[in-house]
């Protein structure tokens, strides 16, 4: 049996307030096997970061995990105390956040911040921590590492800040790295370098959950991908299957939009309408109002996960059907 690094099953996260309840993560199941990079894709606001925060144990009130199970190498994470969880974070389980500027301390030199992470998790001297910090800076490809270690975050370019974040996340060789849009703020050349770095980290034994809305980056990097829409995973498959035989109309819409950019032509393909607000989800399938295959049942009933082939679950009553012309 293949070893599962991360297994999320039927996870739900809800927010309740006087205005009502909404569920940004709704019955999400996915797994990351050892040595794999799994992509989690979807448009802004669909719940990608919230899923990641749930795995890290970082959901804050009024948000709450309202159901499901999360295990890391077989260990149940939701049952751990905050103290046990914080011992795990940064050591066995790490995350690179969407915006490095908000997650680095602006008044502490970046090398020092990496040292602190090492000292927190390992019984080593300050001297040894400094040495390890310098090594990891070299390893993530920060040029003139000895000099850069003394820089403050604002003195570094966006690409270097992201490398510092990755250095900090990787320094204890975690089992799982969650990278939340690590390249969204970067230009194509730096993005390509960071993707290369992710592959190297994977080759050294860290499994990665790669969150992105860039289908190009996901195609280049991931072994497997999950597509999320309005809080739910609507389709998941091995990467080539997903791109060659997308079964959900939303996945097809996204891939069509990207492909049309690469064709010469006047008008680009789009998905009509827009993403619904999570507190005003339509009844039935949340994609129904934008879907060309939508019928009366779709507006009434929420589809469950069905199979579009081996290892290819999809949440749609009309999976794989062609749109009427």
């Amino acid at each position: 049996m293949e070893q599962k690094t991360l297994e999320i099953s039927h996870l739900s996260v809800s927010f309740s307030s006087w205005r009502g309840t909404f569920t940004p993560v709704n019955d999400v199941s996915l797994e990351v096997r050892a040595g794999e990079i799994v992509g989690l894709v979807g448009e802004s606001g669909c719940g990608k970061s919230m899923t990641a925060r749930a795995v890290m144990g970082l959901i804050r009130a009024p948000g709450k995990v309202t159901g499901g199970r999360i295990t890391l190498c077989g260990k149940d994470l939701l049952g751990l105390s905050e103290k046990e969880m914080s011992r795990l974070r940064g050591a066995e389980l790490s995350m690179v956040f969407q915006d490095p500027m908000t997650s680095l301390n602006p008044v502490v030199p970046v090398g020092r911040q990496v040292e602190e992470t090492i000292l927190l998790h390992r019984q080593v001297s300050r001297e040894e921590a400094r040495k390890q910090a310098a090594e990891i800076f070299e390893e993530v490809g920060i040029p003139e590492a000895e000099k850069r270690i003394r820089c403050y975050p604002h003195e570094l370019s966006g690409g270097l800040r992201q490398r510092v974040m990755i250095a900090m996340a990787m320094v204890c060789r975690p089992r799982l790295l969650i990278a939340d849009e690590p390249t969204t703020a970067l230009d194509v050349i730096v993005e390509a370098q960071i993707l290369q770095l992710m592959r190297r980290m994977r080759d050294q034994g860290t499994s990665i959950l790669f969150i992105s809305h860039n289908l190009g980056a996901v195609a280049q990097l991931c072994d497997y991908a999950c597509v999320m829409y309005a809080g739910q995973i609507v389709e998941q498959a091995e990467i080539c299957t997903l791109f060659d035989h997308p079964a959900h109309p939303y996945t097809r819409g996204l891939l069509g939009a990207v492909a049309s950019l690469h064709r010469r032509g006047e008008t680009l393909d789009t998905i009509r309408g827009s993403v619904p607000a999570l507190n005003r989800l339509p009844a039935g399938c949340s994609f129904a109002p934008r879907c060309d295959l939508c019928d009366e049942r779709c507006m009434r009933e929420t589809p469950a996960m069905t199979s579009a082939g081996a290892g290819h679950p999809v949440r749609c009553f009309h999976a794989g059907e062609e749109a009427p012309v």
């Binding site: 050349i189 390509a192 993707l195 190009g216 195609a219 280049q220 991931c222 080539c240």
Partner: peptide, 12 residues
């Protein structure tokens, strides 16, 4: 060449 091609069969 750096732009990520949305095609897993054409990895750079």
């Amino acid at each position: 060449d750096a732009a990520p091609v949305p095609d897993p069969h054409r990895r750079r």
